[in-house]
Design a protein around this nucleic acid. Structure first.
Length: 413
DNA sequence: TCTGGGGTCCTCTGCCCT
DNA sequence: TCTGAGGGCAGAGGACCC
């Protein structure tokens, strides 16, 4: 059966999943040590905020990530809310990834706070590597993490979850730190576990599986694949069936290129006019375009997302002939898409995204580009100003439909 | 009572073309 | 010229993840 400490006689899998414990909160506690031991949450504390990360003390009250701030406060009135500092989390995450890469070059970051490692080529035992990683991350960054060790990604991820501390009313219980699922014991380990432990089973799939009498992974593994495909769809059915049978051929792939980039904003109160939404689209487009240029990519498909007051969400998208990385061009397309949308019911969230990313070198010159200066030149100039004076040095105005000579760019005084 | 933000992947539908 | 089948693609939405 699965083990939680050192590797014994059985063969170890070579995939590790490393997961930081309450990452955002842990980073915040490094600069606010006086909050240690208290229920702390990082996230939006406003009327429409949610918890992005909660300390184990907060979790012992039932607070969890993605929970509305109001609900978190009701469960735990003394909870301390801290605003997020994404820039800082990114910096810490970057340093942790460097630590992980010192053990193997095969590191696949999944998010800021977790990654898969393939240690097949390492001299040390995988479980030993897990303990070394925990020690080094704690020593150098002051953050604790959990490690799962298994032969496949899905089980390594489940292992790290089981290695984490448990929130209890008397305070967080110490987790085992490193949890191994030995090779050959995978199916027996999985069989009694709930299907919700499978990566990819959320509330909707859980309800469907429940309707056909499936509660455990063992039951799912035995269920006829054809019937499962009818219930949850062909691709999803095959995927779940494979995972339930401990089959997960996905390799650890370091450095995957992004496939889309987006920004969205939830308003404190619903917005009812195209003008106000258009102004927000300009700012969001500028942010997305700036990130595209930093990543040296451009995208062909522009998508806007509109969420109404009743939480219904629609998207409108358009694929362009050539890729864009210009905030102004992006904003113009986004505003064009917004014109098709009736905003009378009131909009609580608006977003802009770009997909079908490719090398901007493939960017075709349009007639508009033939003039001088082009938006391309303007964007490069803006990037140079931001490189030199910071991202706040220059902002877009709201005149995204104007040409470069009637530019919407403004320098704050 | 309330539901952020940034992603990925899949399915369905409608349109266009052959 | 009309009609239907089928493939490819774009667009929209749903589900899920952290």
């Amino acid at each position: 059966m699965a083990k939680s400490t050192q590797s014994g006689d059985t063969q170890s899998g070579t995939i590790l999943h490393v997961d930081m414990d309450a990452f955002f909160v842990s980073v915040e506690l490094l600069r606010r040590p006086e909050l240690r031991g208290l229920p702390v949450a990082v996230g939006g504390s406003g009327s429409r905020g949610v918890v992005a990360s909660a300390s184990y003390e907060a979790r012992s009250y039932g607070v969890s990530s993605a929970m509305p701030a109001g609900q978190a406060r009701r469960l735990c009135p003394e909870i301390v809310f801290l605003p997020g500092d994404h820039q800082l989390y990114q910096e810490v995450s970057g340093r942790i990834m460097v630590i992980l890469r010192s053990f193997t070059p095969l590191v696949e970051p999944l998010s800021l706070d977790e990654a898969f490692l393939d240690v097949a080529g390492a001299h040390r035992q995988p479980v030993e590597i897990g303990h070394l990683i925990r020690g080094q991350v704690r020593e150098e960054e002051g953050i604790s993490c959990a490690v799962g060790v298994a032969a496949i990604k899905f089980l390594a991820k489940l292992g790290s979850k089981l290695a984490k501390p448990e929130p209890t009313r008397s305070g967080p219980s110490e987790g085992v730190g490193v949890f191994e699922v030995p090779v050959g014991e995978e199916r027996a380990f999985l069989a009694p576990r709930p299907v919700s432990d499978i990566w990819g089973v959320g509330p909707a799939t859980l309800a469907r599986l429940s309707r056909i009498g499936i509660a455990t992974i063992g039951e799912l593994a035995q269920f006829p694949l054809e019937r499962l495909e009818q219930v949850v769809g062909k691709a999803h059915g095959q995927h779940l069936h494979s995972l339930a049978n401990a089959v997960d051929p996905r390799p650890v792939i370091p450095e995957t290129a992004p496939k889309s980039m987006s920004h969205e904003k939830t308003f404190p109160r619903d917005v009812y006019t195209h003008d106000a939404l258009g102004a927000e689209l300009v700012a969001l487009s500028d942010s997305v375009a700036s990130r595209l240029r930093t990543a040296r990519v451009a995208g062909r498909t522009v998508t806007i997302k509109v969420r109404f007051g009743d939480f219904t969400t629609i998207t409108r998208s358009h694929t362009l002939a050539s890729p864009v990385d210009s905030g102004v061009v992006l904003a113009r397309e986004a505003k064009r898409l917004l014109e098709e949308v009736d905003v009378d019911p009131g909009v609580r969230l608006i977003g802009v995204g770009v997909s079908e990313l490719e090398d901007p070198g493939q960017r075709q010159l349009s007639l508009e580009d033939a003039g001088a200066p082009s938006w391309h030149d303007v964007d490069r100039a803006v990037d140079r100003i931001r490189d030199r004076f910071g991202t706040e040095a220059i902002h877009t105005g709201g005149i995204a439909d104007a040409g470069p000579r009637q530019t919407g760019w403004t320098r704050p005084s």
